[in-house]
């Protein structure tokens, strides 16, 4: 039994180290002036929140993001001069396993001209 405990402990530690190093687990920082606020349905636990963070971070235009579980929202800050379409946001959210409830362009300049009415 000792060898089982030893192996379990060793692998658990390795998994934790791998998890910590695989991608920065930096604490989120609230964005004071977000460019876009996305309402996301289905966000119900911290583990789920990481999935959507990971998907959205892959979008080049996004500089920072902030998930707020209580409101079910994700605030996005874009890189300078960048825009982001609703289509890209919806695709990323859907691939993460959630549904977009709303997309609010707090900074109108963040909306692509092709999408502006």
């Amino acid at each position: 039994m000792t060898r089982s405990f030893a192996l379990t402990g060793l692998l658990a530690v390795l998994l934790l180290m791998f998890g910590l190093n695989h991608q920065a687990v930096a604490q989120q920082q609230e964005i004071k002036n977000p460019d876009i606020r996305v309402g996301v349905d289905g966000l119900a636990c911290p583990f789920c929140a990481y999935g959507i963070e990971k998907k959205l971070k892959k979008i080049d235009a996004i500089d920072k993001l902030y998930v707020n579980l209580e409101d079910g929202t994700v605030d996005l800050a874009l890189k300078s001069e960048m825009t982001l379409s609703e289509g890209k946001i919806k695709k990323a959210v859907k691939e993460a396993g959630f549904e977009v409830r709303s997309i609010e362009y707090v900074n109108k300049a963040a909306k692509p001209k092709s999408q502006a009415k």
Binding site: T8, F47, K54, G97
Partner: peptide
């Protein structure tokens, strides 16, 4: 276990 596209979860148990 909840999972999205292209995402992976690992779990070790005793």
């Amino acid at each position: 276990l909840p999972i999205g596209k292209g995402k992976a979860i690992f779990r070790v148990q005793n």
